[in-house]
């Protein structure tokens, strides 16, 4: 399988462990990642708030690059997935086309609208299938209880991003089970991580993150896994602040989606960039009999 690889900004910067683990997993699963050094940022939802037409145009340009190469596009971030899908959806509106197409024409770009935007979670669970993944597992994550944390933009608005279900998805849980771990169902799995207002009202954002982590723990989770690096920032990089906001320790390891897959496929913690996390993953690794990461 060959896909246009859209890593997004965070995986190329503060979340490089996501890019690193994606490459490791893609290689093992036979997904060829075609690189496009000219992809721009998806706008992360913020550009859409400032100038929605510009946001669609930026993403139409990205989509056109993949289209020209005859490839569908692979995202590894719920927010990138949401923004690129939203552009695809909005470009069906002739009024949007009328504003965007002339600007694209000025840079010699035309986008027909043929590219499918797929998140790694979809590629793994739908295109490859969880049964095929289960067959590749060399180190089942037995004994580890994992809560999926989907990230809003992967799921909603369901009518626009075309996900599996806005509020009751199951693909991630099915994957967790295929990797040998036990999926944990909890309300917070489809809720917000707080990230969009981390810069607006940090205290509220921290409390929202803490609420989802507490909810997962109350349902027995040893760790969370997320297909969104922005959720990872809120849940991992700012977990110390979330703990402070609610006045108790959280100590919840947060895996990126490909890190969890990689662990089950036999990757070492270093190969997956686990030492880069702010919250130690040791306790979770110990559960699956994996040596802990040096601090």
């Amino acid at each position: 399988m060959k896909l246009a690889y859209y890593p997004g900004c965070v995986a190329q910067e503060s979340g490089r462990e996501l890019d690193q683990s994606t490459r490791w997993v893609a290689q093992r699963l036979g997904i060829e990642l075609v690189e496009f050094p000219s992809f721009s940022c998806c706008g992360s939802g913020f550009v859409d708030e400032a100038n929605s037409t510009l946001n669609v145009a930026l993403n139409a340009r990205n989509l056109a690059l993949a289209e020209k190469a005859g490839l569908d596009l692979l995202t590894i971030c719920s927010t990138c997935q949401g923004m690129l899908s939203l552009a695809n959806h909005r470009l069906k509106d002739p009024a949007v086309r009328a504003r965007v197409d002339p600007a694209l024409a000025k840079i010699g770009v035309a986008y027909r609208g043929s590219v499918r935007v797929k998140h790694l979670l979809e590629v793994v669970t739908r295109d490859l299938g969880v049964d095929a993944i289960a067959k590749k597992v060399t180190r089942p994550l037995r004994g580890l209880k994992v809560g999926a944390f989907y990230g809003c933009h992967l799921l909603r608005p369901a009518g626009e991003v075309g996900g599996e279900s806005g509020e009751e998805p199951r693909s991630f849980e099915n994957l967790i089970a295929a990797l040998g771990a036990t999926p944990v169902l909890y309300r917070g799995r489809v809720m917000c991580c707080g990230f969009p207002i981390l810069f607006v009202r940090e205290g509220t954002a921290n409390r929202i993150a803490a609420t989802q982590i507490d909810d997962a723990r109350a349902h027995g989770a040893d760790a969370l896994a997320t297909p969104c690096p922005l959720c990872h920032i809120s849940l991992d990089s700012f977990q110390n602040k979330a703990a402070k906001a609610v006045g108790h320790a959280l100590d919840m390891p947060i895996f990126h989606l490909p890190q969890l897959i990689g662990l089950a496929l036999g990757a070492s913690p270093e190969e997956l960039g686990l030492p880069r996390h702010l919250v130690a993953t040791d306790a979770a690794l110990a559960k699956i009999g994996q040596v802990s990461v040096p601090a």
């Binding site: 721009s40 600007a103 702010l278």
Partner: peptide, 30 residues
């Protein structure tokens, strides 16, 4: 705290190829 684990947060990223195209979209639409 974050930069200790993720030192690249302290550096600006490289320009993408085709940044001029992005600039042109801003000129046209923003």
């Amino acid at each position: 705290k974050i930069a200790r684990k993720k030192p690249e947060t302290l550096h600006a990223p490289r320009k993408i190829e085709g940044q001029a195209e992005v600039e042109a979209l801003y000129v046209a639409l923003d």
